[in-house]
Design a protein around this nucleic acid. Structure first.
Length: 611
DNA sequence: AACGGAACTG
DNA sequence: CAGTTCCGTT
C-alpha cells in the first residue's frame, strides 16, 4: 500500500522546515516542494514516486498556484515554477527524471550540505547539553541517508519500499511536533533534543543525519554553502577504499564536503582519511571533543592529503588559521578584518610572484540591462500584489490578519553594497583545457562570481569541462551529470582546525611532497597547476561518480543484497603520513562548537517565527 | 514538455 | 540571492 498515513515519505525532518534554508528569509522552492510532499492533503497534487527523492507533480497548475500563493505571486504558473526548478539543476539540488513527465528528483546530498551546520564562533556559548546524538558513521562508506538497497529500508514485508521510506519515522515525529510548517519555527530546538536523545530504533543514519545536519547557520545562504561544498571529494576517487556496505557500525561520516559526490542512494567507497580509518572506538559520533576531533582531523587531512582545491575549504567565520609558510602581511583576506581564515593556500593569489598560469581578463560590467526589447514602458502593471484570492492554504495562513508573509524580513541581510562589480573571466576559456582555477579567497563578495554557476555547456565559465565527460553536447549519459558546480571558497578545514586548536600537519608539510597519491611526475609541476588539475579532475570525477552511482543505485533496486556480503574488509588505509600527531589540545573548543550549534538552532527557530 | 538565456525583482 | 518573467529553441 502506499502507506496512506505517512505516504509522504520521508525526508529528514530538517528538510521540511523552513529554517532549513539557511540564509533565506523567504521560503525556498525546494523547501516548499518538500512541504507539499509531506502533506497528505497534497498527494494528489504532488507526491513521491519512484526512486529515492523522486517526486512527480501530478497537478502542475495547482502546485504552481500554491507556490504562487505562498510567494504572493499570483501570476505564477508551472512554466515559471519549472524554470525555478530548472535552476536547481545547476545547483544540483534537483534534477529531472528524464522520460517521466513532471517528475523531478532531489539530490539529497546537496540538501544535506545546505543544512550542514556552521557555527559562528563569535560567542562562547555553553550550558547546552552536548547531548549529541550518536551518529553512525561510515568510514569507508559514503554517508547515505537512505539505504541504497530496498532491503535496507524495507520493512519485512517489503511494503514501504517507497524510495525514501527511511525517514518515515522521523517525518512522523516531526509532524507531531510542528505542524504549522512555516509559522512555527519553535520546534527545532526541542526536536533536536527529543530526537537527539532517543536512543531508539531509529536508524543510525537518521540520527546521524539529524545530529549532524540539523543545525545550521542562518547567515549562510544557499549559494555560499553550495560553493563551499560544491567541491567533489578527490579522496573519493583516489581511495578505492573498502566500502562497508551495510555495515552497521561505521566510522563517522565525515564532512559532507568530502562525500557529497554521489547521489543519496549510493554508497561510495570512500576513505575520508587515514586518521579516520584508524581505530574508531565508539561506533558513534557525537559532538564530544573526541569525536569532533576525529572528525575534523579526518576532514582536514583528507583535504590536505589530496590537494583538494583551496576552494574546497568553506569559509569559516571567526577562525584564524595558522599561516603556513609565506609570512603574509595583511593577506588579502576576506573582507573586513573581522575574524577570518587565513587560507593556507592563499599563496596562490594573484599577486603571486611567479608567472601565474592563470590568465584572466576583466570583463566589463554587464551592459546596461534593459536591453530586452522595446522601450521600457514605465512598468507598474502586473506585479502589483493585488489582493489575489489566496486559498488560505495551510502554510502561511497563520500570518496575522490577512496579509501573508509577503513582506516580512526577519534577518537583516547585509545590505549588499553595490561595488564596481567586475567579472573575472578566464581567458583560457573554452579551448584550453588547462583551465584555471582561481584560488580566490574572499568569499562574501563578488569575487565569488567568478565561479558562479558555470555552464559547461554554453558559456564556459572558469571551470573546465573535462573532455570526454562533460556534457558539451546533448549527450545522454548525462542523466546525472550536472554542470560543474560553483566553486566554493575559503577553508572550513583550516577553520575547523583552528577552532579545535590544532595544527594541521599536512598543512605545514610542503604540499608538494605529502601527497600519497600524487602521480609521478607531478613533483615538478607548480603548485598552482597541480591544484588546477586536481580541480579539473575532481570535477570530472564527480560527474562520473554521480552517474555511476545513479546507475548503480538503479541496478541495486533489482538485486537487494548481493556481493555486499561482508567484503568490508578493512580498507587499506594509507598510513598517516608524517603527522601522526594529530592529537591535539582541544576539547573546550569543541564543546563550544557543539553548544553553538544548538544555540544557533534554537535561535533560528525564533527568527523564523514571523513567517 | 522541457530547457536555458537574459533581464529583472524584492 | 533566489527566484520571476519572458521567450526562443529543441
Amino acid at each position: 500500500m502506499k502507506t496512506p498515513r505517512d505516504s509522504g515519505f520521508a525526508f529528514p525532518d530538517w528538510a521540511y522546515k523552513p529554517e532549513s534554508s539557511p540564509g533565506s528569509r523567504q521560503i525556498q522552492l525546494w523547501h516548499f516542494i518538500l512541504e507539499l510532499l509531506r502533506k497528505e492533503e497534497y498527494h494528489d497534487v504532488i507526491a513521491w514516486q519512484g526512486d529515492y527523492g523522486e517526486f512527480v507533480i501530478k497537478d502542475p497548475d495547482e502546485v504552481a498556484r500554491l507556490w504562487g500563493a505562498r510567494k504572493c505571486k499570483p501570476q505564477m504558473n508551472y512554466d515559471k515554477l519549472s524554470r525555478a526548478l530548472r535552476y536547481y539543476y545547476n545547483k544540483r539540488i534537483l534534477h529531472k527524471t528524464k522520460g517521466k513527465r513532471f517528475t523531478y528528483k532531489f539530490n539529497f546530498n546537496k540538501l544535506v550540505l545546505v543544512n550542514y551546520p556552521f557555527i559562528d564562533m563569535g560567542s562562547a556559548g555553553s550550558s547546552v547539553p552536548q547531548s549529541a546524538p550518536p551518529v553512525p558513521s561510515g568510514v569507508g562508506t559514503h554517508f547515505r541517508f537512505p539505504p541504497s538497497t530496498p532491503s535496507d529500508v524495507l520493512s519485512p514485508n517489503g511494503e514501504e519500499l517507497r524510495s525514501p521510506g527511511v525517514f518515515t519515522s522521523v517525518a512522523r515525529r516531526a509532524a507531531r511536533g510542528s505542524v504549522s510548517d512555516c509559522s512555527d519555527g519553535t520546534s527545532v530546538a526541542s526536536e533536536l533534543e527529543e530526537v537527539g536523545m532517543t536512543g531508539s530504533d531509529e536508524r543510525p543514519a537518521e540520527r546521524a543525519f539529524r545530529s549532524l545536519f540539523l543545525p545550521h547557520h542562518p547567515r549562510l545562504t544557499h549559494d555560499s554553502l553550495f560553493r563551499m561544498y560544491g567541491v567533489p571529494p578527490p579522496a573519493a576517487v583516489h581511495f578505492p577504499a573498502s566500502p562497508l556496505p551495510g555495515a552497521p557500525l561505521l566510522p563517522p561520516q565525515l564532512s559532507p564536503a568530502l562525500s557529497m559526490t554521489s547521489t543519496p542512494s549510493s554508497h561510495l567507497p570512500y576513505t575520508p582519511s587515514p586518521s579516520l580509518a584508524s581505530p574508531m572506538p565508539g561506533s558513534h559520533f557525537s559532538f564530544s571533543p573526541e569525536d569532533m576531533k576525529r572528525y575534523l582531523q579526518a576532514h582536514a587531512q583528507s583535504v590536505y592529503n589530496y590537494h583538494l582545491s583551496p576552494r574546497a575549504f568553506p569559509h569559516y567565520p571567526s577562525i584564524v588559521v595558522p599561516q603556513p609558510q609565506r609570512p603574509d602581511k595583511g593577506m588579502a583576506g576576506p573582507t573586513a578584518g573581522t575574524h577570518f581564515v587565513a587560507h593556507p593556500l592563499h599563496h596562490q593569489q594573484p599577486e603571486d610572484p611567479h608567472p601565474s598560469p592563470y590568465k584572466f581578463k576583466l570583463q566589463p560590467p554587464p551592459l546596461g540591462r534593459k536591453h530586452r526589447d522595446g522601450p521600457p514602458p514605465t512598468s507598474a502593471g502586473l506585479s502589483g500584489p493585488s489582493g489575489t484570492p489566496y486559498t488560505g492554504l495551510g502554510e502561511c495562513g497563520s500570518a496575522t490578519g490577512q496579509g501573508f508573509n509577503c513582506s516580512s524580513s526577519g534577518l537583516t541581510s547585509s545590505g549588499s553594497g553595490g561595488p564596481p562589480k567586475i567579472k573575472v573571466e578566464s581567458v583560457s576559456d573554452i579551448e584550453s583545457e588547462e583551465e584555471v582555477e582561481v584560488t580566490d579567497i574572499s568569499e562574501d563578495d563578488d569575487n565569488c562570481d567568478v565561479f558562479a554557476p558555470s555552464h559547461c555547456n554554453g558559456r564556459p565559465a572558469l571551470l573546465p569541462c573535462p573532455d570526454g565527460i562533460m556534457d558539451n553536447e546533448e549527450d545522454e549519459l548525462e542523466e546525472d551529470l550536472f554542470k560543474t558546480p560553483a566553486a566554493p571558497s575559503s577553508g572550513i578545514i583550516s577553520g575547523i582546525a583552528a577552532v579545535v586548536g590544532m595544527t594541521l600537519p599536512g598543512l605545514k608539510a610542503e604540499p608538494r611532497e605529502g601527497s600519497p597519491s600524487s602521480p609521478g611526475g607531478t613533483q615538478c609541476i607548480p603548485l598552482k597547476l597541480r591544484f588546477k588539475r586536481r580541480w579539473s579532475e575532481d570535477q570530472r570525477m564527480e560527474a562520473e561518480i554521480e552517474e555511476a552511482e545513479d546507475k548503480k543505485s538503479r541496478a541495486e533496486k533489482e538485486e537487494p543484497s548481493a556481493q555486499e556480503a561482508q567484503s568490508q574488509k578493512v580498507m587499506p588505509v594509507e598510513e598517516e603520513m608524517s603527522g601522526g600527531s594529530l592529537a591535539a589540545p582541544l576539547g573546550a573548543g569543541l564543546r563550544r562548537v557543539s553548544s553553538e550549534l544548538q544555540k544557533a538552532t534554537a535561535q533560528l527557530s525564533l527568527e523564523n517565527n514571523g513567517c
